[in-house]
Design a protein around this nucleic acid. Structure first.
Lengths: 341, 341
DNA sequence: TGTCGGTTTGCATAGGTTTGCGCAAATTGG
DNA sequence: CCAATTTGCGCAAACCTATGCAAACCGACA
């Protein structure tokens, strides 16, 4: 209802020149006033700031980004948002970045859009860093990551032999820990439900798991693929029920599958958890703590993982990529009722 | 491993000038080649395009946005990402926009950052449109929305008396539909679990619900606040169990609360659903269909809601805001086992 | 008072694109 | 074959800010 304070049409932004005129200084003075630790007198800075707030001015990120090649944006390449683990990651990133004045640009592959095409696009926007999550990078992709002009971090993924930074939880140790836990609790016939074929997370968790079982003299566990989805977990449960030797414990590479397994065992198979079968997941999503499930799981410390990711992204102060480093944050087994008794 | 094809350092982008030189044309020809229906000969366009792909050129969105004020980005203001309904919305938006070559900029309020501060920031980035979801706009906010230079759409929210476009599901009709369903099924003592105080969605759903009950001669239902969270639903269930007259049906203003209610009734109260109490939710999130819950709920047609939102955003071809329109998409009651029998 | 070291400030340019304008070329109609 | 249009293309301005460089300024010390 109220017209804008200044005389200009509401269509045009107030520019640095307007502020400069109002404050009686040059444009560069305005620019310096908004640049942290730039060479400017305290007095002029305050005069500029005063004029700026009066006019409602704030620097145009696009024009600024055109020069500095820093647009104040971090690209997040994320292909699956349905698994509740990733919204939690997204939110953690969003909050952490928001408090630093940075913004998230979300890149999700469209219908027939390959993931590789997204990275150049993101770089074109002058993002200050790229976080790639939940994707199996192709060879082409890793090459693109290595030659990117800004830091790139794989979140919750690793690529062996590639010079790319990666942050994740120690999946192998997690799988091992779960195997040890089951063995110590006297479980004899554990089974495994894998995620998407080729996903490094599933792979490492399985590796640690089988290693732990083997060390205890147990055979390699029977194995089904659940594609990291609830429905996949349901199907896996049904298939595992058909085995001659029914498993007495099931470790699913991911919580959402574990919940599917648990539900399948109970509702379709008519089994009781934990009395008949134990179920263990990985991630510790919110639903794992719901009374209906009370799922024992390996908690991924999202906050620390995000913090480490940002630390890597920000470790180069001139914006250039940094020597690749891999950070494995330790997780923790959360025991709940799906393994009690 | 392989060095970049062109001789330039990998640090510098290939610019329009490079392409122009390679194609033997002027810079403007390159620009026109990338501008839809610009005045350019077919032949030169193809020559430009050929050179462009050879050099791996694509227009710099920042520089382009600086002039056109169209950066190819849509701002999404979203405060709570934990309720699974919103990730689903986010993903639908991401996919729809991705296939149109647009990108999402996610704005989430930081620790102590007010939501109002986010809108000017978003506009500063030259976004082509703003979608605000899951927020109760303040008076100040609505004023800012009304005078924004680009279309702004409230998603799943409405503000009465404000000149802002809004897209949502017909919450009142949904509440009414649920009331009718419960009444027709012979329920006598329905209760209601509200969301956050002041949220328009919860308000309208309650209004339709109580209207339906009143029309059937039933009293205004007992009411508890669940804050739109699972834990809130748990608490609401406990409180409703303490009532003198235990309800025989509970309608929660959103699925995640309904699941909390359901779990609370079963695990804490020792009741059976649906034998002892019916439970109905609103949204139809993925977990509602899980066998453990099998929650009857009112499905919000996310895809259509998103499509309508984008239609409004794109309805102005010169980028200016459009006369506000409110679109209410009809939803549908999905009957599952939480109300069977 | 002159000079010197350090801090501020302004000028001018860069950054990559879009677009109005003018001119040349091609097309059309008579 | 010529005039009237249409079409195609290059030049240069514009968008808005950051920053190197040099000038101006300040206080202080000899």
């Amino acid at each position: 209802m109220t017209p804008p304070k200044n005389g200009k049409s509401k269509m045009e932004r107030t520019t640095a020149a307007d502020v400069a005129r109002a404050a009686g200084v040059s444009i560069s003075a305005v620019s310096r006033a908004f640049t942290p630790n730039a060479s400017i007198a305290k007095q002029t800075k305050s005069r500029v700031m005063q004029a700026a707030t009066a006019l409602g001015y704030q620097p145009n990120p696009l024009a600024r980004g055109l020069i500095t090649r820093r647009s104040g944006m971090i690209a997040l390449l994320m292909s699956e948002v349905t698994n509740p683990f990733y919204p939690a990651v997204l939110e953690t990133f969003a909050r952490a970045l928001s408090s630093r004045g940075k913004r998230i640009m979300l890149f999700t592959p469209g219908e027939d859009e390959p993931l590789e095409a997204l990275l150049p696009q993101a770089l074109g926007y002058g993002v200050e860093g790229v976080v790639i999550t939940s994707a199996r990078p192709t060879a082409e992709m890793t090459a693109a990551c290595e030659s990117a002009p800004v830091p790139v971090v794989l979140f919750n993924r690793t690529v062996e032999g590639a010079a790319i930074s990666a942050v994740g939880c120690d999946n192998e140790a997690g799988g091992r820990k779960i195997a040890d836990f089951l063995v110590e609790s006297g479980r004899k016939r554990p089974a495994f439900v894998a995620g998407l074929a080729g996903a490094s997370t599933s792979l490492y968790r399985e590796r640690g798991f089988t290693a732990g079982l083997t060390a205890a003299g147990l055979p390699t566990p029977p194995r089904h693929v659940g594609d990291f989805t609830f429905e996949g977990g349901l199907r896996a449960a049904e298939e595992l029920l058909d085995l001659k030797e029914q498993p007495d414990a099931i470790f699913a590479a991911n919580d959402i599958m574990a919940l599917g397994v648990l539900d399948g065992l109970r509702r379709v198979g008519g089994l009781r958890v934990p009395e008949d079968v134990w179920v263990v997941g990985f991630d510790d999503i919110a639903a794992a703590a719901w009374p209906s499930f009370s799922l024992t799981t390996f908690r991924q410390p999202i906050k620390r993982m995000v913090a480490e990711t940002l630390r890597i992204l920000e470790s180069s102060d001139d914006g250039a990529p940094v020597p690749p480093s891999t950070v494995l944050v330790p997780g923790r087994l959360i025991e709940r009722n799906s393994t009690a008794g």
